[in-house]
C-alpha cells in the first residue's frame, strides 16, 4: 500500500474539539462492509455530516474550507476504540495528511502511519492554542519534526521514531521491509520447531 511521500504540509487547520473521538465516530460500522478502500472519504464522520434523510448538514467537514484542509486538529485521545483501518483510509481519502492531538490511541496511530497519515502528539499549550484558533495556517515539517504555528505562535517539536519517519518521507510501506527478512524468518521458524498443530 504505497502512498504519497510526506515531508512538509502547509494547510489551514480543520478543528474538531471533542475529546475521545473514537473510530466508530470517524467511520461508522455501516461503512465497514466494503471490500475495497475507495471512496471512504465520503463517509468519514458520516454521523456529523449527514442528516437522517441523507442530506448534508452545515458541519465544517462539508464546507469547502474543511474539504481543502490537510491538517486535522482534534481533542485529547483521538482514534480510540475499534481497530478499523477504515478510519485512516477515510481520513486520507477525504484529504487529511496530518492529525494533531494531545493523545492519539495506539492502534489508530499504527494504522495511520501505514497509510501516509501522520499522527502528531503536541504539548498541551500548543494543542490548546490550536483548538482555540480553528482555521489558522500551520506548517508541519517531518524533516525537522516541527510544527510551526502562525502569528508568532511559535515552533513545537514532535516525536516520531526514525523508522516511521523514513517510511512516511519516502512513501514506502513495511511489506517490502518484512519481505526482506525471510532468511531471519526461516531461521526463527526452524528453531521454534513445531507449529500449533503438532
Amino acid at each position: 500500500m504505497s502512498f504519497q511521500p510526506l515531508t512538509k504540509v502547509t494547510s489551514k487547520t480543520l478543528v474538531l474539539t471533542a475529546t475521545n473521538i473514537d473510530t466508530d465516530q470517524i467511520m461508522p460500522a455501516k461503512f465497514l462492509s466494503m471490500t475495497t478502500k475507495a471512496g471512504l472519504g465520503e463517509h468519514v464522520f458520516a454521523n456529523l455530516r449527514y442528516n437522517a434523510d441523507g442530506s448534508e448538514t452545515d458541519h465544517i467537514l462539508n464546507t469547502p474550507a474543511g474539504k481543502a484542509s490537510e491538517i486535522l486538529v482534534a481533542g485529547h485521545n483521538f482514534g480510540c476504540g475499534s481497530s478499523r483501518e477504515h478510519a485512516p483510509w477515510g481520513l486520507t481519502d477525504y484529504g487529511i495528511r496530518v492529525v494533531i492531538s494531545s493523545e492519539v490511541a495506539d492502534i489508530f496511530r499504527t494504522n495511520s502511519l501505514k497509510n501516509g497519515l501522520l499522527p502528531i502528539i503536541i504539548e498541551k499549550r500548543a494543542h490548546d492554542w490550536l483548538l482555540d484558533n480553528p482555521g489558522v495556517e500551520v506548517t508541519v515539517d517531518l524533516d525537522s519534526c516541527e510544527v510551526h504555528l502562525p502569528r508568532n505562535g511559535g515552533t513545537y517539536k514532535f516525536e516520531i521514531d526514525d523508522f516511521s519517519r523514513h517510511c512516511l518521507m519516502e512513501g514506502v510501506d513495511e511489506m517490502g521491509y518484512l519481505q526482506g527478512q525471510h532468511i531471519e524468518l526461516d531461521k526463527f521458524e526452524k528453531n521454534q520447531g513445531g507449529n500449533r498443530n503438532s
Binding site: M1, E85, T110, N111, K114, M175, L185
Partner: peptide
Amino acid sequence: FGIGTTQVGHVLANQSILMR
C-alpha cells in the same frame, strides 16, 4: 492484540509484524 488491515496483510505474507 488487535491490528489494522495493513498488518493483517503483513501477517498473512510474513507471519510477523513490526512493533516497538
